[in-house]
Design a binder for these strands. Sequence first.
DNA 1: TAACTTCTTGACCATGGAGTCAACTTACTC
DNA 2: GAGTAAGTTGACTCCATGGTCAAGAAGTTA
Lengths: 191, 191
Amino acid sequence: MTAPERPRRADARRNVEGIRRAALDVFRASGLTTPLDEVARAAGVSKGTIYHRFGSRRGLIDAIVDELVAERIQGIIAAVGELADPLARFEEYLLRMWLLQYDEPAVNDVLIRALPDSEPLLSLCERAQRFALGLLRDAQRAGVVRNDLTADDLAWLILERGAIVQACAQQTREDYQRRLRFLLDGLRDNH
Amino acid sequence: MTAPERPRRADARRNVEGIRRAALDVFRASGLTTPLDEVARAAGVSKGTIYHRFGSRRGLIDAIVDELVAERIQGIIAAVGELADPLARFEEYLLRMWLLQYDEPAVNDVLIRALPDSEPLLSLCERAQRFALGLLRDAQRAGVVRNDLTADDLAWLILERGAIVQACAQQTREDYQRRLRFLLDGLRDNH
DNA sequence: TAACTTCTTGACCATGGAGTCAACTTACTC
DNA sequence: GAGTAAGTTGACTCCATGGTCAAGAAGTTA
């Protein structure tokens, strides 16, 4: 029922794309709470343009969150899907998620609380959560992961890691990863 | 060489004490970053008085940090000192520190980074760290804690927990504690 | 190229917190 | 019960950030 719209002007199209790319860069580097002025500067436009095109900070984030996060998480799900051993699948999933959180701190802004109702992201999180639940169940059936670990625990373990990465950015990737091992070992079933 | 100072006026003494108490309450409840206006309101004075008496937010924090944190940590050291079994000592120390962090979120503001050069606190942290190092070494000698765990790791595990508590305040104490068990189990030596 | 519409700009407003200070109040001293 | 020094106040400045909008710039069309 909507009238056929005239295509956007060339400069508008150019700017939208430029803002998207700038936002990806800036948000990746400094998180989703970076002032929009910085995004504007990086894109070579004024702040007003961002608001005009995307409505709000939130609108901008919604517009790029997919490219920022979704692909990486889908990549993890795919990679883990290739593995056969239940324990390896379970541990590899967690490990890769945790490392993603280290490598792309913006992921944590997304996971922790910023976007309660971003539709595409929400469904992705649900998918990831279902996937994780499957991994957990298989690993527990195989007797390699402790039985008192719940799906909620799993979600928390990932959220927690986000908080850690944000607050303790100084640790090297090596140390970070080595310490993840402690936790993974604690999740195994070794009576 | 300083001239003998006249004692402070009664209202000043009263206010200093009132501000201290109010700051303890407010900071305990809402963390060290709470606006000073709230402390002022709780103390029944104006913000200016706080600045006049304590110089800055930092000065106020320095003035109460001991009562806010030091006693609790000393209590933990003392309590753990009573125990005999190396594993119990090691785990009880961590567990109590972690629970303290849950029960008193202000502790985390202190630990994480707020006060690089608060003298009494610094020495306390060193004392706690030395104490923890002893626990770790004993536990490792007894073969009950994994050998690749370092003193730095220990410090990090505590800092990390601070970040978690701040970011994920919604979890119940029960869940929080249950999840601590996962990590503790991962620190044991079970080849 | 002129008219028209879309788009962009940057100055502007609002919010909230840190910290300051001149004017006012109050406790102490004699 | 003055007089005076010490103490308190709250309105003020400053700064950072989110978000808005009237005026002007620029692409599009005929």
